[in-house]
């Protein structure tokens, strides 16, 4: 992979920490959109200096969905809750950042134990993918609002997508586009559900969702 890949992966990793440290929904959505841009650029440059039209088209679709359509859907949803735009963590920002750091460290250590192909060994690809998946889990479990859980899911998907970069030659364009569409559909359905949660509980604090238990 070309040398430009490493700085891009580091950027994606840094965005993980920005996501964990954001205290406002707007900035959370902004950072997840930027991570989408980084992923799209990675997709375009990962396989040499002269990407073909197919790769470029896929990268454009990825950016349009991950940095355009999905953040827009999320942004629309936040407007419902006009007064409360804070992230409302269950665990403090400092603790989640520390946990994120530990998770990234473990991802780096574990990623280096897996045998990589020579063309992938110099890059941080697997650690970055695993750390991003972990960040997604952290966001989903330590934030109260339903919308932040959706953003956590999106981060998790970004991590899976990062790993998918190693396979973009194996994956037919149809499947990749279908995967992206599925993601958009998931965010769409989740967005509708979040709206219904707002309407039912007049907030989207998921701690209100605790009537069902044994």
């Amino acid at each position: 992979m070309p040398p430009i890949v490493d700085p891009l992966l580091v950027t994606a990793l840094l965005l993980n920490f920005l996501l964990l440290g954001s205290s406002r929904l707007r900035s959370l959505i902004r950072w997840i959109a930027w991570q989408g841009v980084v992923l799209g650029v990675l997709l375009a440059v990962a396989h040499g200096d002269h990407p073909g039209p197919r790769t470029l088209a896929l990268a454009a679709v990825a950016v349009a969905m991950k940095a355009g359509l999905v953040p827009w859907l999320l942004y629309r949803t936040t407007r419902q809750d006009a007064l409360r735009r804070e992230v409302e963590p269950l665990l403090s920002f400092v603790s989640t950042l520390l946990l994120g750091g530990v998770g990234t460290g473990i991802a780096l250590a574990f990623g280096s134990t897996l045998p990589m192909l020579p063309e992938h060994t110099t890059v941080l690809l697997v650690p970055a993918a695993l750390a991003t998946v972990f960040t997604g889990f952290l966001l989903m479990t330590t934030r109260r609002k339903a919308i932040t859980q959706v953003i956590g899911y999106l981060t998790l998907e970004n991590g899976v997508f990062l790993f998918g970069l190693t396979l973009s030659e194996a994956m037919p364009a149809m499947v990749e586009i279908a995967l992206l569409l599925d993601l958009v559909a998931a965010i769409f359905v989740m967005g509708i559900t979040v709206n219904h949660i707002y309407r039912t509980f007049s907030s989207a604090d998921t701690t209100a969702l605790s009537a069902l238990r044994d």
């Binding site: 998946v133 859980q149 998790l156 969702l209 069902l212």
Partner: peptide
């Protein structure tokens, strides 16, 4: 209120599960 809670948990847990399956497929 009860069915929206069930739907939310179903969506989130199910989506995380299938994301892991996608990572596994890769």
């Amino acid at each position: 209120a009860r069915s929206i809670e069930a739907t939310w948990k179903y969506l989130l847990i199910g989506s995380v599960g299938v994301s892991l399956a996608l990572l596994g497929s890769f």
